[in-house]
Structures are given as C-alpha cells and as structure tokens.
Design a protein around this nucleic acid. Structure first.
Lengths: 340, 340
DNA sequence: ATATTTCTTGCACGCGAGTGCAAAACACTC
DNA sequence: GAGTGTTTTGCACTCGCGTGCAAGAAATAT
C-alpha cells in the first residue's frame, strides 16, 4: 500500500540533470562536490543551487566503482554475548562516519558463514575488514586476504603475530601487569585466572602474562580455567562447576578474569551459587570496563582501554599513511572499584 | 610494511577474464552465477572451473549499479546502551545474510549526524532502512523518504502511525495486557510505571495501555515516571530520585518497566539504594528478555518478542511481495522469573 | 531430410561517476 | 595589446556488470 514514494520525479537525479540545469558540464558538477578541486566559486555555487533544487545527491555506488574506493569498512563480529561489543560498535561507527566511512556489520558467529560473509563483504570492495571478534582463525584471515579486494585486515583490540595484519590494541602485558600489581598489593595470594577460548588468537597473552608474573614472583603457577566463549552465562557455568568441586579451603581469594564478560559470570557464581561476598570472600577483576561494570551491582575493578584513541588510529590507518607509532601499545586505565 | 597483499596478479579478476579462459562470452559467465538462468549445464561448469582457477568473484558494486538492487540494508540505531540491541543485531544480521542481504550499521545517536548518516546510507542505494532505534523523529523519516533512494522504511520492533512506513513488531497492547494481568494476579496493587523517552514514537503505547487498563479496573491512574533514554544508568538515576523522595508508605509494590534496560536500573535502585528486596518489598517487570534478565542477579519477569519470526518477516518484506498478514501483531511469551 | 520449436549464446547499450589531459577562459605583466 | 602564466572547464575512456533482444545451435516434429 505504501508503495509509491518518489514524491519528485520518477527515478533518481544524476549529475547530468544538475549539469543541464546549472548550465555546466557533468564534470563540473562532480567537481563541485569535491573538496579542493579546481573549480571557480561561482560555478560551484551555480551547481549547488541546481543540485538543491533537484534534490541531487551523488551516487556512492557509481563513485566507488569508478574510483575503487568504497569508503566502506566491514566490521566482523562473532561474539554478540559480550556487552563490550556494543560499546565498540558505537565508538567505531561514530568515528568512522565522522571521517567518511560507513560500516558493514558482518556476523561471523557460525563458522561456515564466516568465510562466506567475509567473501561477500569483499565483493563490496570494502576498504578494510576490521575484526573485533574473538575466534577468528588463520584460514579465515587467509581467505580474506586471498579475496584480493580486502585491502587491509585490521584486528581491533586484539593483538596477533599473524603477518599481513594490522593490530590496534593496548599493551596487554602492561595492562595485565597493572592488574597483577594491584592484586598483589591488595594482599591476595590465591588467584584463579578465568580465561576465554584458548584459540591461537589474541587474549591468551593476558593469561600468559599473569601466570608468568605470578609464577616468577611466588614460585607457583596459579590455577586457571577456560571458558569456550566470552559469554557471561558460559562463564557462570564453567566457574560454578570448577568452584563447586573445590573444598572451601582451596578456594581462590581472587578471580582474575580475561574480561568483564567473564568477570560478571564469575561474580554471579560467587554470590549466588556459593553464597559468598565480593570482595571479602573472593575478589574479582575484569577487563574492558563495560557499562555494567560501573553499576552498583558489579562494581568491577577493571581495565579501560582508550577506545576513542584506538578508533582514531584506525581512521589513520584507513587514510593510508604509514602510521609511525606502534599501534599495539595503547595505554588504558585501571578502574578501581569495590570488587577487588 | 604489510603493504603487498595481492598474491595473484595485480588488480582484480573480472568476468571478462573468466570468459576468455572458459571460451565463452562475458554474459555467459554472468549467467553461470545466476540461479535459473538460461544456460547449459556444460557451459556453466566450464565457467565455474575457470572462475575457480582465476579466483573470480562477481563484483557486487558493479552489479548493484547496473541492476539498481544493492542487497544492502541500513540498520539505524541510536541506542547503544540497551543490551537488547545486541541481540537484535545478531539476529537480524544473521537472518539477512542468510537471505542475501548485507547490513550497513548506522549510528544515529547524535541528532545532527542522524540525517546525514541516513542520507549517506541512501547514497549507497540501500534496499531498505530498518530502524531499531527509539528517538527517530518524523522529520528524519521524511528525509529518508525524501532521498528517493531509500525504497523502504521499516520500523523493527516498534509500531507507529506514520504513513509510508512498514512496522514489524508485536502487539504492544496485547503484551502489556499480559503483564498487567500477571501483575494483578500476583496481588500487586500499587504500581509505578517506568517509561522511556516520551517522544511521539512507539513505546508510549506500552505505557498508555498499562495506565488505561489499570485506571479502568481500579479507578485510579498509577504514577509513572519517564527516563530520557533506555539506559540502565539513567533509569537508575531517575528511579532513585523519584523513590527517595517518597515516604516508605507511599512506595510502589511493583515497578512495571517499559523494557529490561530500565528494569535493570530500577532493580539496582531498589536493592542498592533503598536496601529493599525484590520481589518481596518491590517487584519488577521488564520487556524484551535481554540475556542478563535470565541471569541469577536480575531474574527478571519479562516479555520475549519472537525476534526470529520478526526478522523473517523483514526478509519477506524485502523480497517485495505484498505481505498479507498484519506485521504489527506478533505474539511473544511472558517469561516469568522471580522478580515479580 | 526439412520445417519447427526450444534452448543457448552473443551483443549493444546503459548504470553514474572518476581520471588525466588538453583546450578554453581568465589574469597579469611590460 | 601581445605574451606568459594560471585557473577552469570539457571530454574520451574506464569501472564491472545487468537487461532485453536477436541470432545461432540443438532438439523435436513431420
């Protein structure tokens, strides 16, 4: 029923139409839209007025095709259970948009679809693929680069040794060292490390750093368990199963988590399954500083990454210059709250 | 440094290349990729082999340009504080992708950027714009339709009386009636309604329905307050300010919230600011059934919308057929948990 | 074997704009 | 006002593929 939009004329207005009305050539019309193009103020004005009158907007599809620059970025996510992703998406889309890029949201949850989705994105000639997922594997990356149209592959908030890839993240080992120092300073001595999926990808660095620091300083390696996804609910299950089979005297006095998503699940276990207090009985630390972490319930001591700076760095990379600084060493803050 | 991908030849493989290698014309190559196109099995096979060998993938940009069908949908969001959005995004992207559509994520948080973002999306000739935001205003919609390239405007999980717009949502008034019935059945008699922004858009229907039902049945209109965004933290603040100035005897016995995002904020107030118990002192209901609502902490009684069905309906609309059924009357379930 | 019908294939033209260069228009100097 | 330099403008060609139609090949009928 609502089948007839197109209040103006049928079809869309092209640069030719504008050119005719403005009494110039089509190329001049296009120039009018290009920042610092060789065009006189007068004819730009004529063009803009004509464009306004006709409701003309340049067609990005045609433009991308002709120029081989799509101003499109694919954002690949496989982890919609982690609220931090929402924060990242908001920040990234906003900052990318401000700089002229649009964002293609690609859901790579199911393994099979992942490479298909990536391929599909590449068919749109995205200027870059940004991964903020967790489980990406190397063959997937190969696929991405294999499809020649993905010009840049960027891991956001993740580090990796994989070549041909640009990583924008903070220094996990510095960050984890801060957490370690804090935990030790507060007097905790029986830590449990709660890790995410043990894929060959990024986060393991956090675990490894913490375990190594602890082992070097105290002579014994802390226990640790792994959760197959950064999902609070899965973290809840794994942590519960682990803690419940432990004698009370063997319980940790602090659970250091790879991120907030896991920390929230762990805290729920401590309180609702074990009936213990946080931090008096068991303290908890996270990573990411999701919005909920600041709420009265969790009050999570965690680490906040400088997302805005990182997003701006992403823009810089997209703009193409060789970026001088090291993009894997951003510094964040330790947010101290009451959970530890 | 990682500046030379393109393992194969420089530039990308086009249908012409494939055609040459396969010994057919370019058009036959394209036909090979088109479901039920007039082409012999033999030549399709030849083409596919050649394509495989060269690593050819059809260019969607060129295709969209030529066919005026982008298979792109713009997803507009202005509310990244509500965890339910993450669920929606996951569901929508997955189902859209399965049906051949890609998703452009457009952040419309800042009012100024909103119409610019929308315009920008329209320049990519999206097949439709799907709004899952909250504060969209009518002028924005006008802008969207004004840019002739937005062919369809769809409100997802929101109802509206606005013409030229397709709404896919569940029947808010049925849903709210279920909640009302439940609340009454459980014996609550002093409700407070916690509403979101009072824009001329959708959700007010939930508030209006509840207030009307209550007023009709009990002769007096419940108190209600409004939060300027569906943000748990803002809900916390508003609810706290309201409840704290109330004499204990005037406190509600149940807080009916427009959605879970608000409900979580409200519950935190009840517990951590008032030091009361949920549901014994004050019960709480939500709407949406976000993942956290099922966690041990909130255990929120809420209403779950049939997102998958709704997403499939969206696909049906995109596929263009006049959809017979009423798209504004999906039915969800009341998820009864311990919060009320 | 010839006439028909049906399936395949090739092609001209178009989608809407970008690029680099050459011609045209304007400015300025002496 | 001719000569030189600079700014503007126009144009041919290209990007990779879709559409509709007409010619060619293959299959069926007579």
């Amino acid at each position: 029923m609502q089948e007839k939009p197109q209040p103006p004329v049928g079809g869309s207005v092209t640069a030719d139409d504008v050119a005719e009305l403005a009494g110039v050539s089509r190329w001049t019309v296009n120039r009018a839209y290009k920042k610092d193009a060789p065009i006189s103020a007068k004819s730009r004005k004529k063009v803009m007025e004509a464009a306004e009158k006709l409701g003309y907007v340049p067609d990005l599809l045609a433009s991308s095709l002709a120029s081989d620059r799509s101003n499109l970025v694919a954002l690949l996510i496989d982890d919609f259970a982690n609220p931090h992703k929402l924060v990242m998406m908001e920040r990234l889309t906003r900052i990318l948009r401000k700089n002229g890029w649009d964002t293609l949201l690609v859901n790579t949850i199911s393994e099979e679809d992942a490479s298909a989705a990536l391929l599909n994105a590449s068919q749109r000639r995205v200027d870059a693929a940004v991964l903020i997922g967790t489980k990406f594997n190397h063959t997937e990356l190969e696929t991405a680069l294999g499809a020649r149209r993905v010009k840049k592959l960027i891991l956001f908030a993740r580090n990796t040794a994989y070549k041909n890839t640009i990583s924008i993240c903070c220094d996990d080992s510095d960050a984890m060292t801060m957490i370690y120092d804090y935990v030790v300073k507060r007097g905790y001595r029986k830590p449990l490390f709660l890790a995410g999926p043990q894929s060959p990808s990024a986060h393991v660095l956090r675990k490894d750093t913490f375990l190594k620091l602890w082992t070097d300083a105290w002579g014994e390696t802390p226990h640790w368990i792994s959760v197959p996804a950064y999902d609070p609910h899965l973290a809840f299950i794994e942590t519960r199963d682990y803690l419940k089979q432990l004698a009370p005297s063997d319980r940790p006095d602090v659970i250091v988590c790879e991120n907030d998503s896991l920390a929230m699940g762990a805290m729920d276990v401590v309180r609702y399954e074990l009936g213990l207090r946080v931090p008096e009985d068991i303290a908890i630390t996270g990573f990411d500083d999701v919005p909920q972490a600041a709420g009265p319930h969790y009050q999570l001591t965690t680490y906040r990454q400088p997302l805005t700076d990182m997003a701006n760095a992403l823009v810089a990379v997209l703009k193409g210059g060789e970026v001088a600084e090291d993009l894997t060493r951003f510094d964040g803050h330790l947010m101290v709250r009451t959970s530890a």
